[in-house]
Simulated assay, not measured.
Amino acid sequence: MTNDFETQTEQKEPAAKKTRRRVKNVSEPTTTDQPVGKVRLRLIPIWLRIIIVILLFLVAVILGLVIGYSVLGDGAASDVLKWETWQHLLDIINGKE
């Protein structure tokens, strides 16, 4: 019974925190025979990915405007990119016409 009591009162070490980096154990000797982990090289940097996503978003918006104005509406496809078209639309919304 004393053994049960001793095992219950022993302090257990908390589980090791999982990290992405491997922690080298100092007590283990280092060997060079083990394969080195794969290093991921980014071909496209993150800042360039952000710029590409923004440009693709703008292209999608412009294509949507052109298709909506020329196919669904009765306007010319090039008129959607003119400022006069948008000024007329804003005047209608604000009640100036």
Rank of each mutant, 00 (worst) to 15 (best):
G37Q: 09
E13I: 11
V71A: 15
W86S: 01
K38A: 04
E28W: 10
S27T: 05
K82T: 01
R42L: 09
I54A: 13
I52E: 06
I52Q: 12
A77G: 10
G37P: 03
D79V: 06
N94G: 07
W86A: 02
D74E: 14
L81M: 14
V26R: 15
E6N: 11
D74P: 01
P45S: 15
M1K: 11
V53S: 09
T32Q: 10
A15R: 13
K38Y: 06
D91R: 14
T30H: 10
L58H: 08
K38N: 05
V23W: 06
I93Q: 09
H88N: 10
D91S: 10
Q11I: 11
L72P: 00
L89I: 09
I51Y: 04
E84M: 02
E84K: 03
P14M: 06
I52V: 14
G37C: 04
P29D: 02
V26E: 04
P14F: 06
M1E: 03
F57C: 09
N3E: 13
I46D: 11
R42V: 12
D91A: 15
V59C: 10
Q87F: 15
T32A: 12
I54V: 15
T19W: 03
D33A: 14
N3I: 12
S70A: 15
V61L: 04
R21G: 08
K82A: 01
A77M: 07
P45N: 15
K18Q: 03
L72C: 07
E6A: 13
W83E: 02
W47E: 14
P35S: 14
L43E: 04
V23P: 01
P45I: 15
V26I: 07
N25W: 04
P29S: 12
T2G: 06
K38W: 04
L41Q: 03
S27L: 08
E10W: 09
N25I: 05
Q34C: 04
T9S: 14
V59M: 07
K96Q: 12
K38T: 05
K18P: 01
R49I: 01
Q34T: 12
W86Y: 08
K17Q: 03
K24I: 06
L72R: 07
V61A: 05
I54S: 14
V23Q: 10
D4W: 08
K38F: 09
N25T: 04
R22V: 08
P35C: 10
R20M: 14
K17N: 02
K12W: 10
V23G: 03
I44P: 00
E84A: 06
N25V: 05
A15E: 10
G73P: 00
F5W: 08
R42C: 10
Q87V: 15
R20K: 15
R22G: 02
N25F: 04
T19A: 07
G73H: 02
P14V: 04
K82W: 01
N94V: 05
G73M: 01
L65G: 00
V59D: 06
W86C: 00
L72E: 05
S70N: 07
Q34R: 14
T19Y: 03
N25S: 05
T85M: 00
L56V: 04
E6I: 13
Q87G: 13
V80E: 00
N94F: 09
I67G: 09
V61R: 08
A60F: 12
I51D: 02
K17A: 07
D33V: 12
M1F: 08
T2Y: 09
